[in-house]
């Protein structure tokens, strides 16, 4: 079984809820369980929030593109922004004792914790793409 759903969302905070709601529907429509719903919900929220805030910097001229893909191996989520990009490996470790009391910087840790694979790349047409996969739920 393979199914794809694509969204184009404006660069505002409300898009986080919209993407999460669409993700929940997509996962449930594909017969996946609560563990999937919970993990994908969090990963989608964090990645879309990053795209809106840090990628597109709330620019109303820029959208966030979200793709959900169901394959026999699991679910893949791709989130693209149109920002200037960043190096995920250069970000501070939020679990370092020196960073524990910082208010920000935990979203990527959550994405990596709840998904099986998370990879970033620069898009040829501009912006950053994060590709996340969660395995299982053989269809």
């Amino acid at each position: 079984m393979s199914e794809t759903k694509e969204l184009r969302l404006p660069s505002r905070i409300e898009s986080v809820d919209e993407a999460a709601s669409q993700a929940e529907t997509f996962v449930k429509d594909n017969g996946l369980g609560d563990d999937f719903v919970s993990a994908i919900d969090l990963a989608v929220r964090e990645s879309v929030a990053n795209a809106v805030k840090h990628g597109n910097k709330f620019d109303p001229e820029k959208e966030v593109e979200v793709t959900f893909l169901r394959s026999p191996k699991g679910v893949e989520i791709v989130v693209r922004d149109f920002g200037t990009g960043f190096d995920p490996e250069a970000l501070p470790d939020p679990t370092d004792p020196a960073n524990l009391l910082k208010a920000n910087g935990r979203g990527i840790l959550f994405m990596r914790s709840f998904m099986d694979e998370v990879q970033w790349s620069s898009h040829d047409g501009g912006g950053m793409v994060v590709r996340m996969r969660k395995s299982g739920g053989e269809g």
Binding site: E46, A49, K102, A103, N104, R106, G107, L109
Partner: peptide, 14 residues
């Protein structure tokens, strides 16, 4: 709760 909410707990604490 998401990372923003966790961050708000930390901000409240500090």
């Amino acid at each position: 709760i998401d990372s923003s909410g966790i961050g708000e707990l930390v901000s409240s604490f500090t």
